[in-house]
Design a protein around this nucleic acid. Structure first.
Lengths: 254, 254
DNA sequence: TACTGTCACATGGTCTGACCATCGTCAATC
DNA sequence: GATTGACGATGGTCAGACCATGTGACAGTA
């Protein structure tokens, strides 16, 4: 894990005098908290610790790991900030039941540290959501389809409210991702959507954008209801392409 | 951030007497280390703290944040375990220059806490790598294409060595993802690949798998060289579909 | 019987002070 | 000029303390 030592860095170009090349492997000294984090994660992955299960108290864990409370707490805190553990005063620490919170948190950070190019994001999104739509056409339940249709109706009531409309739009796209019955797609779509959230807000304020968007949504859900994967994919991709165009137009004019 | 309270959990099914549903939003009490983490991340995202730049010493930061060293350290430790910061004894703490390590670490954990379905992963991978191949056909540099071709030649020398072949295979797929000139795709492809690494090791030990795989690789790179996006996409997707088939055959027979 | 208040206890959250190992620096030394 | 050694700064670890909060048991009350 987290490297503690610098790479070898053979200082060959040192001076005139040549030295015997001394081979050595850098000592790996991982910190205590790193170790604890690893151990706990391993216990979780091995099923030894199940979601919702409670860990021993911090003071007990100190004895088990034979370590000070600070080191232990650094590990626990790290895991709980990342959403793997949930700690409550007076109640103890337990494994989080909602694992998705983890990805969510982390992606929020990813978006902070690294800015992706919007075109790259949209390009990837077109591919992923196309797949989501196609998969939904194959595997969405009747209930899911019905819910999406209702969602569209609700959106029509908010064509004049960019903010509300945007929220429902997000719900629509995530709904399709979920209806694909593919957790990977859902995670990735929501991930990318998180990165795009600022840019998309600009798109939907474009005049005329929302009515068009609604029509395109109807086309998508219609293809899904007809269980036509390729049509659904194409409809979704066309929808997103159109969104890009709207975005770029707005960007140029501003 | 990290929720401190339980969800509402309306205990509706309590007894015979019915109760008025009392709506309440759990109190959010963020801990100090959470705050510090947020603040530091914000400083990094705003560009106030640039990669490689050194932070004040822990003891100085304590004074700045007006907090104890333990709380501060919990935050710093969390960030450094996640790869955002790099801390070395006697040297200080600085912002990591390699941001990708962050995603890598995190995904390793994601894979630990949550197991994705292999079919879902492959399905998504087909879509993404198809896009990668298509984009590469449009945007790969001549150098990148040449490097991929050389890579294939090297792979032919290792058709008898499943392990080495696997390593080169990974390099090939990542190379195409990189040649797409789309950082998002590259990150996601390497992410998914990481999840699949165990399963894929099983695929390549199937007799006859490696020669076939090599042929398919040649087809992909050929389409890319011809600058034919759709052909490249189809070739890549066919390659991955074939890999699935090989995997399932191997799985059934075992 | 059902609710409510109280109290001891366990637990996570925070602070403080201390010691250690390591690194960079720079003067002293050969 | 190269090597060495002392010194200060820094992160890593520990132990002990106090606080605020949640839990559970128990008694009191209607």
């Amino acid at each position: 894990m987290t490297p503690v030592k610098n790479p070898p860095m053979m200082t060959a170009t040192r001076s005139s005098k040549s030295r015997a090349a001394f081979k050595a492997r850098p000592i790996q000294k991982s910190s205590i908290s790193d170790d604890i984090v690893q151990q706990i994660m391993k216990q979780i992955s091995s099923g030894n610790l199940k979601p919702g299960e409670r860990l021993p108290s911090e003071r007990d864990l100190c004895k088990s790991f034979n370590t000070g409370r600070s080191s232990l707490r650094e590990a626990l805190r790290c895991l709980s900030i990342m959403g793997v553990l949930t700690a409550r005063v007076g109640e103890g620490t337990s494994v989080s039941t909602d694992g998705s919170k983890f990805l969510e948190t982390v992606m929020q950070w990813r978006f902070i540290t690294e800015k992706y190019d919007i075109r790259n994001l949209m390009e990837t999104r077109i591919s992923l959501e196309g797949l989501a739509a196609a998969s939904s056409a194959e595997r969405a339940t009747e209930d899911e389809i019905a819910a999406l249709e209702i969602l569209i109706e609700r959106m029509e009531g908010f064509v004049d409210d960019a903010k509300r409309y945007g929220a429902l739009d997000l719900e629509f796209h995530l709904g399709i991702a979920r209806a694909s019955q593919n957790q990977v797609i859902y995670d990735l779509v929501s991930l990318i959507r998180g990165q795009l959230v600022r840019a998309l807000a600009e798109v939907l304020v474009v005049p005329d954008a929302r009515p068009r968007s609604t029509e395109e949504h109807k086309g998508i859900i219609s293809s899904i209801r007809k269980r036509n994967p390729e049509a659904a994919r194409k409809a979704m991709q066309a929808h997103l392409e159109a969104a890009i165009t709207r975005y770029e137009d707005a960007h140029v004019s501003s």
